[in-house]
Amino acid sequence: MPTITFIEHNGTRHEVHAEVGQSAMQAATFAGVPGIPGDCGGACACASCHAYVDEAWVERFAPAEGTEYDMLENVVERQPTSRLTCQLVVGADMDGLTLRLPAAQF
């Protein structure tokens, strides 16, 4: 069971045990991490699960495309490492993945 670290904008760290195959968004909401509402439940419809992928991990995910890419273009505080975490599927080899949260969603 990979452990993912979510770091809130204020620096608070949350170590979350994720299931393989789960989205990073769901791992966060299941653990009650504040700052990732994930209102649409992972349908890539609401852009409320934005996070920054740690540099070391960026290449491990297929790049954002389609709906995710278009929504990311327009979220607040967009950075090159921005992703919508509902589109990041947790793999067995992702123990140690770190995701930082923006100051505000949307």
Binding site: D70, N74, F106
Partner: peptide, 9 residues
């Protein structure tokens, strides 16, 4: 429709 960027704005 299929213009999610517009929706955000």
């Amino acid at each position: 429709c299929n213009r999610p960027g517009d929706h955000v704005f």
